[in-house]
Design a protein around this nucleic acid. Structure first.
Lengths: 378, 378
DNA sequence: CTGTTAGCGCATTCAA
DNA sequence: TTGAATGCGCTAACAG
């Protein structure tokens, strides 16, 4: 029996209400809820559960958080100039992976888009409410590092997606996909098909991943370029405005000597390249081969289906959530770095002979190779 | 001077630490932080601000939440069988709209995907931590209503996106786009172009919006069907597997008499229809006209660009957040219902003459009509 | 203008 | 096995 009368409340019932109703102390109710059945008699537990049901009681996060110094939530912070920051399949897959993993352990995911440094400052000044967060930042490396340093002031575990932290943030973890290796492997595959002139179309809006892909292409082409066996051209294009991309690529195609292959820095640009080829009268893949990167669902919207590289974005989200939670739980220090492999995504925009030889995983590549073939425009 | 010594803590500084450092009481610090400058001397405020900066203090949400009975966060709950629930442009735009509005008022957005009723039950049993939530549910109407009823047990303001609540939930609000009217207008436009046989391709996975679009098509065709001037066929197709959709539509095209137009229940299916037409040797829009719905960015990936209807999904997110917050603040009761207009999104997959006459907004439609024309495959 | 008191809901600690 | 006391960080209400 509680001495203090329970104040009349319009709001949610609390432990006290349940305790009063079940004629037990609040601690007993707390123990029942948290499954500490060793400390509660069976009959009492039943009574408590009945009271919980009758009152529709659900534990209130804020009290629990205050007591345990745990928010039971992670953040996903995206620094990107477009206000529709979420409208990017990469980000949504990471978010879905995080959210789904967190749901299994009773955590929530808070998403935040920061359009500029001003929003970043406001965010850092205000934000609490999670135990750790993952961050995805667009822009050049220096800009990104500065953003990471600012975010580190939040003073909770931070995990960087698709990028490495600067050395002065040893506590920051990271999860990346092997963009560099994947791009190199893809490039080598094209080179094996006698590509002598290659056009790389990179997005104007830089992300860490696209930087790495450019590096991978450079890795794979350096020797041949030196030998004079290969010419690599670059074109920077808006990925946001598809039609503009198509025109920019088409214009380039109509100017100089035609490339044997076009590598898009992502799938959007790969699709734009296919359209540009078609528009200029080149057949894909016969005259020009085309590749994308990430193998998102919309790569199938082209004819032929865009050959690409499968991104484990969803798995990155899962892993990011797992790593952060382990660090928060003190099971693992910060500063961990994971690199997930990428796999070839067969399509019809590379000449078929190439597909089975791509990458390490012969079996999978062969199995997947059939995937795109039925969609040819015959 | 605080009597109780401030315990040594590894964690974040609290008001007490700041107060001790600035030699003031906690309330003064609180007042400074909350901008109640009328109650604080100018010099003292400066000293407090200095202490805040030196300690890197940020207010802790849980204490504030506990005291004020406010979580300063909204939820976005998506009930959909695919674990990659976020991988849908409609949902991401709603989420971005909500998140961006909430950021301006210091609120957070928590996203949740529920794959099945089991996850739903777990969610309802556990979830606290927001002051209200928006919900997007796929499936048939009865299923959806049952989901809304279950979610209503959370006992915080609920706003349904793209659907109306059942009558026994008068407190639930909603925001929708005018799918029915938009689909009807689009259909009428096609009928004006002498369509005598129409094929509607609807997704297998139902959402409230697709249901409404089907209703709109029925509205617009009923009379002509009765007069024997029009035949409408229906095809249900997976939108998830693009290649399968293309094949299903192509098969239908090769079976019976060819339709004059194909209406896709969404943009994915519209794109699939264009590919199916091409594959079967029909020119779009000359032989068969094709439409989609929502006008998401990827509609431009086809040649010709898919004619569609612009969805205000982002604005729906903004409005959802605004309405929920107003209800939470007690400025407005629940049970409000908003319907946002849709607009034609000109493309090349309807014969050009049609575009300017579409819908109400002649000026806008005419202006937009040029948009798609340059991308024809000429 | 500034300080004191009290209590939000919960779980750890200790006592019965 | 159960209960009572305590305090996490914060702010409304009131006292000085």
């Amino acid at each position: 029996m509680s001495k203090k009368p329970v104040a009349a409340r319009q709001t949610q019932p609390s432990l006290r209400h349940v305790a009063a109703r079940a004629n037990v102390s609040v601690m007993t109710v707390s123990n029942v809820i948290n499954g500490r059945m060793a400390r509660v008699g069976k009959e009492v537990a039943e009574r408590v559960r009945a009271a919980i049901d009758e009152l529709g009681y659900r534990p209130q996060r804020s009290g629990r958080s205050l007591r345990l110094k745990r928010e039971f939530a992670l953040g996903l912070t995206v620094m990107h100039p477009d206000r529709r920051f979420l409208d990017d399949p990469y980000i949504t897959q990471v978010a879905a992976g995080m959210s789904n993993h967190l749901a299994t352990i009773g955590y929530g995911l808070m998403v935040n888009g920061l359009q500029d440094r001003e929003a970043l400052a406001a965010f850092v000044g205000r934000s609490t409410g999670y135990d750790g967060f993952a961050v995805m930042v667009s822009g050049g490396r220096d800009e990104r590092l500065s953003t990471y340093r600012t975010l580190a002031q939040l003073n909770v575990p931070m995990l960087i997606v698709q990028d490495l932290p600067p050395e002065d943030l040893p506590a920051a973890s990271s999860v990346r996909q092997d963009d560099r290796g994947g791009a190199a492997a893809l490039t080598e595959e094209l080179l094996r098909l006698d590509v002598r002139r290659l056009l790389c179309v990179m997005p104007r809006q830089i992300w860490p991943g696209t930087e790495q892909r450019a590096a991978g292409i450079a890795d794979a082409t350096r020797a041949r370029i030196a030998e004079g066996q290969l010419v690599v051209d670059y074109l920077t294009s808006h990925e946001e405005d598809f039609e503009t991309s198509v025109e920019e690529i088409a214009q380039r195609l109509s100017q100089g000597p035609a490339p044997d292959a076009i590598m898009g820095g992502n799938d959007q640009l790969g699709l734009a390249a296919i359209q540009a080829c078609t528009r200029c009268g080149f057949a894909v893949p016969r005259d020009i081969m085309v590749t994308g990167f990430n193998a998102f669902w919309f790569r199938k919207f082209s004819t032929p289906v865009l050959s690409s590289v499968t991104s484990p974005a969803y798995e990155i989200g899962l892993e990011a959530a797992r790593m952060l939670v382990r660090t928060i739980d003190g099971e693992e220090p910060g500063g961990q770095h994971k690199l997930l492999p990428v796999h070839p995504a067969a399509g019809g925009s590379i000449r078929p002979a190439a597909e089975p030889k791509f990458g390490i995983r012969d079996g999978e590549a062969t199995a997947a190779a059939g995937e795109g073939h039925s969609s040819g425009c015959r």
